[in-house]
Design a protein around this nucleic acid. Structure first.
Length: 903
RNA sequence: GGGGAUUUAGCUCAGCUGGCUAGAGCGUACGAUUCACAUUCGUAAGGUCACAGGUUCGAGCCCUGUAAUCCCCACCA
């Protein structure tokens, strides 16, 4: 039970986490099992705990945690630990993500590095290979979560490819299939020719690029295009119906250059008369707008670019060229044959693969789509009804706005790594009565037979967001008809950047599957930027690795640092400085505890050697926790550790009780509003500026052991949600505490005498004034040189020792009626610094400055009072406050002036 | 084109229902030092709260407008 001189996180953290884990304190199911005899969905046990459930957005199983995960864990674990301390049955459910496409990209790179290609292997073999690859990597991420202190229930870890997840996803898909919400459609999708897969709209990254706009003559009609190579897929030229210039040509045809085809001239709103010539070529198979024009006019879709990015269905000279080669040749041929009549440089935005940066090709593909209308409408209804509370609030509106414009959701992906789509296509053409596609869960089979008809499995896998939209459902083991107090989740915490991709889909899916919203509140965090507010990126070299900071400064320091100065939904800067400041707080707390433990030890020895019993200091107790005083008491004290009763003997003791109560109140308020930074800030200020700098300093004179113990426990518990390791390390190191601080009870309000507590503020003012004046006097080491003199002032007289200790002056004496030295600028106290006359004279300028400053404040107050409307309309207590302040300032000025005259 | 934010000290941010004589951390300056902690203690300097109007007894906060910065969605032949 000894405390080293400073806190070394590395010596404690892993042992502490191991001890928590070994004691199963993070698993609520071991201690609470809901009982629902009457089937009303409410836990029937007496004194049943409130449940608190939260899930971890599953980190990528094969990767290392990045700074965003660090923030996520700091936020979620603080909530989790806070609610555990508050006595809730708290379940923080960890997860790991197979991260379909993300992992696939990593794996494919790995394959290429070893000289292989995905096309050498079958789909099932690839799946097995990736599974092994991920299994190898997975433990790493989980160790890092432990290092960050995540107090999650490890036995309940859900992997996104776990059997129960796949089962649930298939059940939902089957239900949707039966409900007619799933359809197979040939639509244009964004397709990455490198990865050879389609994406959902949301996965596409648009970038502004400079390009060329070429003017091409289709007979007498000039069309403009940035993609001349697609002209082989043109099936019409469109003009605006209002466009007078082309009135006569509508309904006729033009010759498509480089081909022997004639294509019709049609009218469509899509053609903007203001843009270019007002005539636009229509390529339904390779452009999103043109696709829609084609639908409206029933145009043929000619696919001229294949999935590997080469030309098909084009005249012989162009066949098999890549799109880039083809463009070059088409331009040359157009020019040679006189069709190319102009070109200009433009800037336009181009769709890119968010992973490899390849330009995405709009590609005609048969894919599975979800008709989202019903899902979106139900979600909108619940959101508008306020069923989910958002932090920050404005995201609710943003989300509704998004859902209102939501298009059907493409859930097919052409990558092997993921959950197989449980749909099978009929391969037996003779069975004409059977449907073309059937649902079946046997996706481990390539070919199945049903009623004598053979079907072949669709090779595609689900979009990851389709399965992860089930996250709250699968993590809490929600099931039809069974009571589940953990669903809906209390809160969903995740990044604001995946509001649409994930949060929106969880809400839609939760409502569709369970009929309930999946969570009651949503907290969204912003991006963690570098110290200059720049986005972190490998290319900029400004990436901060959270594990590196944990190693250097400790897990708590990282958590405290990253929570500070951060509010919901905002992208905010982060720097090592904030982590250092967190590290310093941990060390401060360690040394506070070290001091208190040494006092406790000393007193114990003293007690052994004397017959003195009871009161740690002579004097009458002002308040006692066992016999509560009438005021200042909020809650009955709860059992906690070994020390739960104390008396207060001086103003400083009452004061710290009051300050700690205020602190608890503020932390509770902050946590219920998800104001993490504010909670941390309050604790920091209270522990450092109040507890250590004033209370502990004053306790160097009066050592109230029971109070020291109680207040220290209060601080340790209150800080625990944010700094779990150092608080636990101290708790384990203290001689009188039992169990884990992680499972302690949230502190009750402390009892104190409020009048006495308020009196201590006067002491603080006096001490500050003495310190300020000592610093302002000429010379150094003034605190050692000059004594204090008081005249007929009982507050100072009774608190001489404490004032002397806090100011470090050598002595405090009674003046005995003859003022001398320098009178301090205190309105209500007669206090002098025993300073020789020549020093006082040197202080004169300073004094003049102070008079002016107070004068300005006084003018301000008087101005306010001279406004009759203020006196009349402002609340009475404010007017009184102003009056009191005026009196005080006036008294102060007259004293300062008198002092100046003496000099 | 549609939507959402931001602008407060040198830097990063608080400031919630208007009561503010605008706060914190870091940084800066000056001073201290065996006695829990130099990962320390004390003191101080530093602000036209982006700008312009308005409402109000009173505006950093509410309203209108302007400017700058950022994000998302859609479009860009």
């Amino acid at each position: 039970m000894t405390f080293a001189k400073s806190y070394e996180p590395g010596e404690f953290e892993s042992d502490i986490y191991a001890a928590w884990e070994a004691s199963d304190i993070f698993d609520p199911k071991l201690t609470t099992k809901p009982v629902d005899d009457d089937g009303d969905g409410i836990d029937d046990r007496d004194g049943a705990k409130d449940t608190y459930s939260i899930v971890m957005p599953p980190p990528n199983a094969n990767g290392n945690l990045h700074i965003g995960h660090g923030l996520t864990i700091a936020l979620e674990d603080s909530l989790t630990r806070y609610h555990r301390l508050r006595g809730d049955s708290t379940w923080y459910i960890p997860g790991a993500d197979h991260a379909g496409f993300e992992t696939w990209v990593v794996y494919e790179k790995n394959l290429e590095k070893h000289g292989h290609s995905r096309f050498e292997f079958g789909r099932d073999e690839l799946y097995t290979r990736v599974w092994d690859f991920v299994a190898e990597q997975r433990g790493n991420m989980e160790l890092q979560l432990r290092a960050l202190g995540a107090s999650c229930a490890w036995d309940d870890l859900t992997f996104t490819l776990d059997e129960n997840v796949v089962d649930r996803v298939y059940t939902t898909f089957e239900k949707m299939w039966k409900d007619g919400m799933i359809y197979r459609g040939e639509k244009l999708v964004n397709y990455c020719p490198k990865h050879r897969t389609a994406f959902a709209d949301i996965e596409v990254e648009h970038k502004d690029e400079s390009g060329t706009l070429w003017d091409i003559a289709y007979d007498d009609i000039i069309v403009s295009t940035t993609r001349p190579e697609t002209l082989f897929g043109d099936t019409a030229v469109a003009v605006n119906p209002e466009d007078e210039r082309y009135k006569d040509r509508v309904g006729t045809t033009v010759h498509l250059p480089l081909t022997d085809r004639e294509i019709p001239i049609i009218t469509d709103e899509h053609a903007d008369p203001e843009y270019g010539t007002g005539a636009v070529k229509i390529t339904p198979a390779h452009d999103f707008d043109d696709f829609e024009v084609g639908e409206r006019h029933n145009l043929e879709r000619i696919q001229v670019i294949a999935e590997d990015g080469t030309m098909i269905n084009v005249p012989e000279p162009y066949l098999g060229l890549t799109t880039a080669e083809c463009r070059k040749k088409v331009l040359k041929d157009l020019k040679d044959q006189g069709y190319l009549v102009g070109e200009k440089k433009i800037t336009h935005s181009v769709a890119h693969c968010y992973k490899c940066g390849t330009v995405l090709e709009p590609m005609l593909k048969e894919q599975w789509f979800i008709d989202v209308e019903r899902l979106a409408n139900t979600a909108i209804e619940h959101l508008e009804f306020g069923k989910i509370k958002f932090h920050p609030e404005n995201k609710q509106k943003v989300l509704i706005n998004y859902l209102k414009g939501l298009k059907d959701w493409n859930i097919s992906r052409q990558i092997p790594w993921g959950i197989a789509i449980p749909m099978f296509r009929k391969i037996d053409d003779t069975a004409t009565d059977e449907p073309d596609w059937i649902f079946d869960r046997r996706t481990h089979l390539k070919v199945i037979e049903k009623a004598g008809v053979k079907y072949q499995r669709d090779e595609d896998t689900f979009d990851t967001w389709f399965s992860s939209s089930h996250w709250p459902i699968v993590c809490t083991n929600w099931d039809e008809g069974n009571i589940n107090p953990y669903y809906p989740l209390n809160v969903m915490e995740t990044g604001a950047d995946i509001l649409f991709a994930w949060v929106a889909r969880m809400i839609m899916m939760g409502l569709y599957v369970t009929g309930e919203v999946p969570f009651k509140e949503v907290y969204l965090h912003g991006l963690v930027l570098d110290e200059h507010g720049q986005k972190m990126s490998k290319s900029k070299g400004n990436v901060i690795n959270p594990m590196d900071l944990v190693t250097r400064f400790g897990s708590d320091a990282f958590r405290l640092g990253i929570l500070r100065g951060r509010s919901a939904g905002m992208n905010q800067a982060f720097s090592e400085n904030s982590v250092i400041s967190g590290r310093n707080l941990c060390n401060k707390l360690w040394n506070i505890s070290r001091l208190i433990q040494s006092i406790v030890d000393d007193k114990a020895k003293e007690f052994e050697g004397s017959s003195f019993e009871g009161d740690p200091e002579p004097g009458k107790a002002r308040s006692s926790a066992t016999t509560p005083v009438a005021t200042g008491v909020v809650d009955a004290p709860q059992e906690r550790g070994a020390s739960n009763s104390y008396d207060t003997f001086n103003m400083g003791e009452d004061w710290i009780c009051r300050e700690l109560n205020d602190c608890l109140e503020q932390v509770e308020q902050a946590m219920s509003n998800y104001r993490f930074a504010e909670a941390v800030e309050t604790l920091y200020q209270t522990i450092w500026d109040k507890y250590a700098d004033w209370f502990l300093e004053s306790q160097k004179i009066y050592q109230n052991v029971p109070l020291l113990k109680t207040t220290l426990e209060t601080i340790l518990i209150a800080l625990h949600p944010f700094a779990p390791f150092v608080t636990e390390a101290i708790w384990q190191n203290l001689s009188w505490t039992d169990g884990f601080v992680a499972t302690a009870k949230w502190p009750a309000r402390l009892e104190f005498d409020p009048i006495s507590a308020e009196q201590f503020e006067n002491i603080r003012i006096i001490v500050s004034e003495v310190r300020t004046t000592l610093q302002a006097l000429p010379g150094t080491n003034n605190a050692k040189k000059y004594s204090l003199l008081f005249d007929n002032d009982s507050l100072i007289k009774d608190n001489q020792l404490i004032i002397r200790t806090l100011t470090k002056v050598p002595a405090i004496n009674s003046l005995d009626g003859v003022p001398r030295g320098l009178r301090l600028a205190l309105a209500n106290h007669e206090l002098y610094l025993d300073v020789p006359e020549n020093v006082v004279k040197e202080y004169k300028d300073n004094l003049t400055e102070r008079i002016l400053a107070v004068g300005r404040e006084l003018d301000n107050l008087n101005l306010r009072m001279s406004n009759p409307n203020y006196v009349e309309r402002a609340p009475a207590h404010l007017v009184k406050e102003t009056t009191d302040q005026i009196k005080e300032k006036e008294a102060l000025i007259s004293r300062l002036k008198a002092e100046l005259e003496i000099i």
